[in-house]
Write a protein that binds this DNA or RNA. Structure first.
Lengths: 343, 343
DNA sequence: ATGCGTAATGTTTACGTAAACATCAGCTCG
DNA sequence: CGAGCTGATGTTTACGTAAACATTACGCAT
C-alpha cells in the first residue's frame, strides 16, 4: 500500500514559504475578508509557486460537507436517463458540486439496498434517485440520517422532493392532437407495467379518450425497446380500425413504424403515429416522428436546485415539481384516410 | 453554515459501547486478523446497534487514497459515451471504487483546462478521459502529480494508456462485406473532422478500397447526427453510380436511410447501407441496419482495469489496447442491382 | 521457576483543514 | 492621555481514522 509519492503540498508548506501562519493561508484560500492585500498577494504567490491544491478530504473531514451529490440509477441506456444525468452533472458543476455515480446492477430491492449501503459510506451530501421509487422503500432505512433525497419520475411526492416531466399533459397533448386530426380513437403502446412514467402516460391516454367520449381500445404492452414496439406494431397492423397510435416512447414508435411499413400500411396516410421523448433521432425516422418533447435539461436543473436547497437548509422537503412538455408535430401524423378509401 | 445535525457515529462511540479501544474497532472494520472472535463479535454488534458508518473523508485523509475515479467527458448524448460510462461505473463499483463525473461544458482547451483544475482539488485517484485527446494537452500540466490517466479512443498511446475499439478493423469488415456482395466501390459518410474515431474509420475505408484496387469516391462529411446523415444521403441519392454506403455511425446511417427512402431509392435493392456502433435501435431501422458492433462494455471494463492497475502500482503506463469489433449483418445490405436493371 | 516470545489489545500520533480563541498594534473618543 | 475598540494575524484544537509503537498476559523452553 505504501507507494512512493510526491508528498502533497499542504497549507503549512505554503505558510512557511509566504512567511505567515497556516491559518492565514486558509483564510486566503476561502476568500475570508480580513486579510490585508499585501499578505494575500504573498500567499497567492506562494500557492502558485508550490502548485498548492487544497485537500478535499481534510476539508470534508473538518466541515462535514463533501460538496458532492450521488446519483443512483439503474441504466444509462435510455435517452432520458443519460440526458437527465448530463444536465444534473452540468448544473452541479456550476454550483461547485461534483457528481458521484451509483449504478445499480439490477432493479431489485436487494441491489438498490446494496447501492444505498455503499452510499452510506460514500462521501455525498445528497442523493438524486432516477429510478422507480418503490424499489427505494427498503433502502431508506440504510440511508445516513443527514443525506437528502430528490427523486425523478415518481409519485412519492409525499415523502420526497419529486421532479417529474408532466407525463399526463404530454400524453394528453398527443392524444388530443390525433383526435383533432379527425381520428375516431387512438391506440396505445404502453411501457412496462412497473414503470411509473408508463403508467401515467397510459392513464392520461385513457382519460383523454374517455373525456372525448371515445372508445378505448385495449392497450398493447412493450418494454420501451424498439423491438417490443415492432411486435406491438405487427398486431396493430392487423387491426383494420386502427388509424392512430400513441407509443409511450420514441423507440417503441420506431418499432411501430417498421412494423407498419413491413405490412404495407403507410404512415401517415393510413395510420398516424405519435411518440414520446423527442430523442434526437426522432426527426430522422421514416417518416419524421411527431412526438412529445421532454425537457430533460430542465429536469436535471430542478433536481440539482432541489437537492442543494435541502442540503443548505438541512431538512427534507416534500412535493412534486412538474416540468412542462410540448408536442413536436412532424410528418408521422395526418387526418385519417377518408371513410370510403379505407374500406 | 452550522446546521442542526445528527452527530455522526464515530469509531470512538462504537469503541465505548463495545468496551474496547477505537483502534480495535478500526481493526475489525478493516478485517485485520489479530482480533479474537469474541471481541470481534462485540464490536460488530455495537456497530450494528449504533448504525456505524465509516467516514470516508477521514479515511481518505489518513490513507491518501479516495477510492474514486474521475471520468471526464464532453457529452453523454452519444450512445457510445453513455454506454462506456455505464460500463465504467459498473466495473468500478465491483472493485469498490466510486465514479465522479466531470462534465466539460464545451470541447475547447479552456473548458478542459477548467475541468482539470477543478479536478485538481477533487478527490480522485485516477482519471479516465473520454474525449479527443488533443484538447488534453494543455490540461496535463494542471494535473496533480499522482493522478493517473486512461484515455478512450485516441492515438495518444505513447503518452497514456489508451483503450480503443478496433475502429480500423470494424471499418474494414464493413467495406469488405459490401465488396464481397459485389459492389464496385463503397461511398463513405464520415464523422466530424476533429474526431479521432472518425478519422480512423475513414482511413480504413480508404485503405480497404485501395487494397482491393477500387476507385475511392470523395467522402461526405457529417457531424454524427442523423440530420447530417440525411443531408449526405440526399447527395448520395443523386449519384447514379452509388450502390453502397458506409456511414461512420448508426445515427448518420439512419439519416441516409431516410434520404434514400424519400428519393425513392430502395434499400437494399438499389443501395446497400452499413453503419457503425450497433445501437439498440439499429435492428429496428427500415430496413434493419447492417452495422459494426462495438463492445462498449468491454471498453469500459478495460478502462477500469487499466486505471486501477496504475493506481495500485503508482506509475503511468503507455500503450494501446484494442477491443475487437464484429460485423452484424442485417437486411440493409444486398448485392448491387444487376447492371441492366439499374440503368 | 525464570525469562522470553507472541498474540491480543491499548495509547499515541499524524493526516490537512478551519473554527475558536488569543494576541497585538493602531486608532478613536471621552 | 489612556481605556476600549477594531482589524489583522497567530496559536490551539478537533474532525475520524489507522499506522506505529506500547503494554499486557499467557505459554513454553530452559
Amino acid at each position: 500500500m505504501s507507494r512512493p509519492k510526491a508528498p502533497r503540498v499542504s497549507m503549512a508548506d505554503v505558510a512557511k514559504l509566504a512567511g505567515v501562519s497556516s491559518q492565514t493561508v486558509s483564510r486566503v484560500a476561502n476568500g475570508h475578508p480580513s486579510v490585508v492585500g499585501t499578505t494575500r498577494q504573498q500567499v497567492l504567490a506562494a500557492m502558485k509557486q508550490l502548485d498548492y491544491r487544497p485537500n478535499s478530504a481534510a476539508r470534508a473531514l473538518k466541515s462535514g460537507q463533501f460538496r458532492t451529490i450521488g446519483v443512483i440509477l439503474f441504466t444509462l441506456s435510455s435517452t432520458g436517463n443519460s440526458r437527465t444525468l448530463e444536465a444534473i452533472a452540468t448544473h452541479a458543476a456550476l454550483q461547485g458540486y461534483a457528481i458521484t455515480l451509483i449504478p445499480v446492477a439490477m432493479p431489485t430491492q436487494d441491489s438498490v439496498l446494496g447501492a444505498f449501503t455503499r452510499l452510506g459510506e460514500l462521501a455525498v451530501d445528497g442523493v438524486i434517485v432516477i429510478m422507480e421509487v418503490h424499489l427505494l422503500d427498503a433502502a431508506t432505512v440504510t440511508l445516513p440520517p443527514n443525506v437528502q433525497v430528490v427523486v425523478v419520475d415518481s409519485d412519492a411526492g409525499d415523502r420526497y422532493t419529486v421532479v417529474d416531466t408532466d407525463q399526463a399533459d404530454g400524453a394528453r397533448q398527443a392524444v388530443a392532437h390525433l383526435l383533432e386530426l379527425g381520428h375516431r380513437t387512438v391506440w396505445h403502446v404502453a411501457g412496462p407495467e412497473e414503470s411509473f412514467a408508463s403508467g401515467r402516460r397510459a392513464q392520461a391516454w385513457r382519460d383523454t379518450l374517455a373525456a372525448a367520449g371515445r372508445e378505448i381500445p385495449p392497450p398493447l404492452r412493450g418494454d420501451w425497446s424498439a423491438e417490443s414496439g415492432y411486435r406491438a406494431g405487427l398486431a396493430l397492423a392487423d387491426e383494420p380500425g386502427c388509424t392512430a397510435v400513441f407509443a409511450a416512447n420514441d423507440q417503441m414508435a420506431l418499432g411501430v413504424l417498421r412494423a407498419l411499413h413491413e405490412r404495407g400500411r403507410s404512415v401517415p396516410a393510413d395510420v398516424s403515429v405519435v411518440g414520446f421523448d423527442d430523442i434526437p433521432d426522432a426527426s430522422s425516422f421514416i417518416p419524421p416522428l411527431t412526438t412529445v418533447h421532454q425537457d430533460f435539461a430542465e429536469v436535471g436543473r430542478r433536481c440539482v436546485e432541489g437537492i442543494l436547497r435541502q442540503i443548505e437548509r438541512g431538512e427534507t422537503e416534500h412535493g412534486t415539481a412538474l416540468v412542462p412538455t410540448r408536442l413536436e408535430v412532424r410528418t408521422s401524423t395526418a387526418p385519417p384516410p377518408r371513410h370510403g378509401a379505407s374500406r
